[in-house]
Design a protein around this nucleic acid. Structure first.
Length: 411
DNA sequence: TCTTGTTTATTCACTC
DNA sequence: GAGTGAATAAACAAGA
């Protein structure tokens, strides 16, 4: 489990050099890199330190999709058939919903603007990344090594996190890119490299399923979702390295027997479901390409499937819930591992941007090197893509949580 | 043309 | 050392 960290440590000899050192990372400049993010950018800034509790959902954002269904309802309802919420209105609505579940959609815009205002204020008042020791340094020098700090998460982890954070539990490739970039500034560079890896991971790993778009939702690329049985790939919610690679037994049998009998159960391995649910793969995985490892659910199969189609999920939010019932990722969020999604995406409201000593101790105990403080906190946000992203492009993102304390004005 | 998706191959790090 | 997970590169095909 620590291998990822060690590997990263190998790549960057000293993590603390990047994460343990206060650095300023202003987001304003980076916003320009996120063309197309639009309101998404703003929304993510709402999780900045200093935000009031209203900017955070009660509990972990990861749980939010399951616990606070009101948010998802509203979000889904906001953008029926909007695909991944590409419409700004939907994004803003979702954003406001995340901001305040009780907020009327009517207030969406104002809330968004408030959020923007908040961001603006914060951007002025403080460096984006929290830091425990504010040194009087030239802010320009601060940003330097920051973007070179590679997060200790594997691509599979990142994809999994993104998908789980998504309200619809599925994202297009481009949305995955955006999510990762938003959360981890590191991935705003060398895009060709890591995006290729992302694509490779999606295709190569059985835990990711491709769901075709509906005919009425033309667009590039399919949606990607998690295999319903891939629930516990990451031990204790730690997204550093999978405890075991997820493989679909069905596929394995196919490979091993290759023409042999297929009488065994249709479940996929890795994480046996206590109550056998119809696997998405079972229903939806015709081999799109004879050679392909990835399988997709054909429209016909989708129609027959007890599990709603993805694209239908997008327009039928109640179906999302049905689908989620099959995804059963809940146990992912039950843990509070220092590198868990909980810590990555949330809990800023719980800690109020202060160092979580407990987490700190945990991390030190795990030997994670630099005192990554506190949960990698970020408030849960809704973006135009329908993601409950906690981050924002830049700064608040992942690195914010890396630093322990609320950022004070470094100037 | 660009993006998306698949596949193969290589290399490295880690565990057993 | 073998097996495995992961990162990376690259080639290729298909679709928008």
């Amino acid at each position: 489990m620590l291998s990822a960290v060690k590997m990263e440590g190998h790549e960057h000899s000293d993590w603390s050099a990047y994460y343990g050192e206060p650095e300023c990372y202003t987001s304003v400049g980076n916003m320009t890199q996120h063309t197309g993010l639009g309101m998404n950018s703003m929304s993510t800034y709402m999780s900045m330190p200093g935000m009031t509790s209203t900017s955070n959902m009660s509990g972990s954002p990861m749980n939010m999709s399951y616990v606070n269904t009101g948010v998802n309802h509203s979000m889904a309802a906001m953008s029926p058939g909007s695909g991944a919420m590409h419409s700004m209105g939907a994004g803003m609505a979702g954003m406001s919903a995340a901001l305040n579940p009780n907020m009327s959609p009517i207030n969406t815009q104002s809330s968004s603007m408030n959020a923007l205002t908040s961001y603006s204020n914060m951007s002025v008042m403080s460096p984006m990344y929290g830091q425990s020791n504010i040194r009087s340094r030239d802010p320009k020098t601060y940003r330097r090594s920051y973007t070179h700090a590679k997060p200790p998460y594997s691509y599979i982890s990142l994809i999994t996190m993104a998908l789980q954070q998504s309200t619809t539990k599925m994202l297009t490739l481009n949305e995955l890119y955006q999510w990762i970039q938003d959360l981890f500034p590191f991935y705003r560079q060398n895009q060709q490299r890591w995006q290729n890896s992302i694509r490779h991971s999606l295709s190569f790993n059985d835990c990711f399923l491709k769901v075709p778009r509906s005919p009425d939702k033309p667009g590039k690329g399919s949606f990607w979702t998690l295999h319903p049985d891939s629930g516990n790939m990451f031990e204790n919610g730690c997204y550093l390295r999978r405890q075991k690679r997820f493989r679909c037994e069905k596929d394995l049998r196919k490979k091993t027997s290759e023409g042999g009998s297929n009488s065994s159960p249709e479940s996929c391995n890795g994480n046996e479901s206590p109550h056998p649910t119809p696997s998405v793969k079972d229903v939806k995985r015709p081999v799109s390409n004879p050679k392909s490892r990835q399988q997709v659910m054909s429209p016909a199969e989708h129609a027959l499937s007890p599990i709603p189609q993805t694209h239908h999920l997008l327009s039928q939010h109640h179906s999302v819930l049905v689908h989620e019932a099959h995804l059963k990722p809940e146990h992912h969020y039950s843990f509070n591992h220092p590198f868990s999604i909980n810590n990555l995406m949330s809990s800023e409201q719980q800690h109020h941007h202060k160092m979580d000593l407990k987490t700190y101790e945990q991390m030190m105990q795990y030997g994670y090197g630099s005192p990554m403080t506190g949960p990698l906190s970020m408030g849960s946000m809704s973006t135009k893509t329908g993601l409950e992203v906690a981050s924002t492009p830049t700064d608040t993102s992942y690195y914010q949580g890396v630093y322990s304390r609320p950022i004070m004005n470094s100037s």
